[in-house]
Design a binder for these strands. Structure first.
Lengths: 224, 224
DNA sequence: CGGCTTGCTGACCATTTGGTAAATATCAGA
DNA sequence: TCTGATATTTACCAAATGGTCAGCAAGCCG
């Protein structure tokens, strides 16, 4: 019943959750259910994308009825938005940790690669959710891309360029280095289906092999 | 009117096109329209994935009415299937060309990288169509993955391993090398939205820069 | 216990979606 | 120009989908 009365000034921007964050004091049930919904939604959205996913699907997976789910979130889009919002925080973290003052820049970048690969393998659904959104032209997070993400990349690219100029790492195109790191690591999450199918039994050592391979590759690329 | 009478033995496998390839002799209009539909469908499917795309959307983009579109194809799935079928042929070609008898294996692999990158940049929609399908768990092309694709990769991985053993290239994990090549090249098609947003004006030299970067990276990785 | 808030359900609704049928328009060749 | 095949449209349908609403059930707290 709070849905409509709660939006007296629908300027259009605040299309977020209903009860979930509306009140500061969440009940136990609210916490449990919203979390269950978000988990289920992550599963579904990351597989089928926004348009290909249905509320029924999410509700079913969360063990709720559709109206019950819509009691916690105002709309399908609200769930998706919250998911993306949360995602971007954790998404930027590995790159944020890249220390401009590191003693050994090569090791520092390799450490970043490892963080990224670990994230891709530990949170493949998050990676796929992001991939799906970008594939569709990033309609719902374009401002996050051109804003915080771009700023962070610009900053770190400058750091990398600085290292290259000082001769601490081999000369590289910093942006394309970052793209290569993203591409190679996220590949193991986004294209897991393909990777597993091709590796067959070799899949068991996939993570270790990938880690070795990427370490070698980027070390050779960056060593001055 | 050929839709139902044409399927007296619906064993379930031959869910393909209606008129398009039913008769060997296609009329001019059939050729034009089916092509228009496939082009439109590629646009739509590559952006929204199978489930997120609608027939109306495709029909509209192709400049046809929905029933008219369904006169040429039996179903949404038929269009998608045909697109994937066509895709896989061209998709495997660059790797097929990798010559086991090449004089300079490093140059041969770099040439493969170039072919792949060029394909990603020339046919981004095809790359995204494929990405979407894999993201969704490859429900419609799993047998193509575990069949022809895996076979080809196995074959070429053996070639690469042979080169490594002969000391013609540095020791690498052949499968992960291939994954890295796929990931880095296709990234420019699949994540174009992100790449463009981050590069900003630098996007103009993106292809050349990417080409340089990947050439350097894989050369350093592979040189014995 | 009693009452108020919170949580949940079944029935419902408008729109969209994949697909069909019959009637009509267009075309290409004799 | 006539005719049969090809092409296209209008009208339709059943199912799915996003979302609402009134009312009922639980939880909680004095």
């Amino acid at each position: 019943m709070v849905s409509k009365p709660d939006k007296p000034a629908p300027i259009g921007e605040d299309v977020s959750l209903a009860r979930a964050a509306a009140s500061k004091t969440q009940t136990r049930i609210q916490r449990e259910k919203t979390e269950a919904i978000l988990t289920a939604a992550l599963d579904v959205f990351s597989t089928y994308g926004f348009r290909g996913s249905t509320i029924d699907q999410i509700a079913k997976q969360a063990g709720l009825s559709k109206p019950n789910l819509l009691y916690y979130f105002d709309s399908k889009e609200a769930i998706h938005s919250l998911l993306l919002e949360r995602l971007l925080e954790t998404w930027l973290e590995p790159l944020k940790k890249l220390d401009p003052a590191a003693d050994d820049p090569v090791a520092e970048i390799i450490a970043y690669v490892h963080r990224k690969l670990e994230m891709a393998c530990d949170y493949p659904r998050e990676s796929r959710l992001f991939a799906n959104e970008i594939l569709q032209g990033a309609p719902r997070i374009m401002d996050q891309i051109t804003g915080p993400l771009k700023d962070l990349v610009d900053e770190k690219a400058a750091v990398i360029e600085g290292w290259a100029e000082q001769g601490k790492i081999a000369p590289v195109h910093p942006y394309h280095l970052i793209f290569s790191i993203w591409a190679t690591t996220q590949h193991y999450a986004d294209f897991d289906t393909q990777v597993s199918a091709i590796l067959g039994e070799r899949s068991e050592t996939c993570f270790e092999d990938a880690c070795d391979h990427l370490t070698t590759m980027f070390t050779k690329l960056l060593r001055p």
